[in-house]
């Protein structure tokens, strides 16, 4: 019996789709698979599959959707992680973690939607949502709708940028949020991705097999060119929130603290120096040069806590009533992207 009192277990077909589960690691242990075996020619198909997965994900930017036998899937999952560890390029690690999470999302949505057996559905929910991420999620009366607590929802949904995830756009009642299958699995994408990322980061491989090393080296050379340093675009115009703050400042209005932080961090990010920024605040009714200078240097990370502050996100500015978005702001997440977007369009 498992922990939710159901006399069913995940089968091999499930482990193929969810190779990050403890049961999959158990399988590897049971088969007494040793990592050195990857140097044997009969393991070539696993290596080729891992290379194929990474090519699809990193070069093509696509989710690898092929599903093979569970023995192959579980091993490929492991070998791919070893390969990424050997490639040792942070963007590759992050991209694979994300795309692997999206792959899981696809399988899980299908399983939760199509699976006929209710105990099996419940088991999947329990294994992935409860055991891995401590989310207490339940089916509602209609088996296509799930409910989870408001805090569980907020902790995850507030990290998403799309407005549809805002709590106000959800069905909320008596402490629960009601969502459909696709939304439920989308909600854990980031945690799944982090779980895979952590697996890669914490993996300790004393000796990487030679054949894996060769594949990894070839992939590293290939992928490196995608991640060369990207130059920042020149900011050609101020976004409306910044314009509004400057206009208010020019007319001697007393800007709230949050608007001052926005203005100063924005100016610092686009490369203005402290002196230039200090003069912007001269019209402020409570202007004090010494205090203003200290605060700007504090935001720049040169004084006090030595933490460099970023420009607040559009979402945050909106909630603080500092957003004055125009059509030019569409699809930007932070005021700093406004200028870049305009520069790109020119």
């Amino acid at each position: 019996m498992n922990s939710i009192g159901l006399a069913i277990k995940l089968g091999p077909a499930d482990l193929a789709k969810y190779p990050f589960l403890e049961e999959a690691s158990e399988y590897i242990r049971e088969t007494r698979f040793a990592i050195e075996e990857l140097d044997r020619p009969e393991m070539d198909h696993i290596l080729r599959r891992s290379v194929d997965i990474l090519e699809t994900e990193i070069s093509a930017g696509k989710v690898y959707t092929n599903l093979d036998k569970y023995e192959i899937e579980i091993l490929s999952f492991l070998v791919t992680l070893i390969m990424i560890k050997s490639i040792d390029l942070e963007p590759v690690t992050k991209k694979h973690s994300l795309l692997e999470a999206m792959r899981t999302e696809k399988f899980l949505a299908e399983d939760l939607f199509k699976e006929k057996s209710l105990p099996k559905k419940k088991l999947l929910l329990h294994k992935i949502f409860q055991e891995l991420f401590d989310i207490d999620i339940h089916f509602d009366l209609d088996l296509t709708i799930f409910r989870l607590s408001v805090p569980d929802y907020l902790m995850r949904a507030s990290k998403m940028n799309e407005q549809e995830w805002k709590l106000i756009n959800r069905s909320v009642h008596s402490g629960y949020v009601y969502i459909d299958t696709d939304e439920a699995v989308r909600l854990i994408r980031s945690e799944l991705s982090n779980l895979i990322y952590d697996r890669i980061k914490t993996m300790k491989i004393p000796l990487v097999p030679e054949r894996v090393k060769i594949c990894a080296e070839e992939l590293r050379k290939k992928f490196s060119i995608y991640y060369t340093y990207r130059k920042h675009h020149i900011v050609s115009d101020y976004p409306p929130c910044i314009k509004h703050a400057i206009e208010m400042m020019n007319t001697g209005e007393n800007l709230p603290h949050s608007a001052r932080v926005m203005l100063a961090t924005y100016m610092l990010t686009i490369g203005k120096n402290t002196d230039e920024i200090v003069t912007m605040f001269q019209n402020s009714p409570d202007y004090n040069e010494k205090v203003t200078r200290y605060q700007i240097e504090h935001l720049a990370g040169n004084k006090g806590s030595r933490i460099k502050y970023s420009v607040p996100s559009c979402k945050r500015l909106h909630s603080e009533d500092l957003c004055f978005a125009t059509v030019d702001c569409e699809n930007i997440l932070n005021p700093i992207q406004f200028g870049r977007k305009k520069a790109n369009a020119q």
């Binding site: 408001v150 507030s158 805002k166 709590l167 106000i168 979402k315």
Partner: peptide, 8 residues
């Protein structure tokens, strides 16, 4: 951030 969503 989560509290900000709650505020909204």
């Amino acid at each position: 951030r989560a509290r900000s969503d709650l505020v909204d």
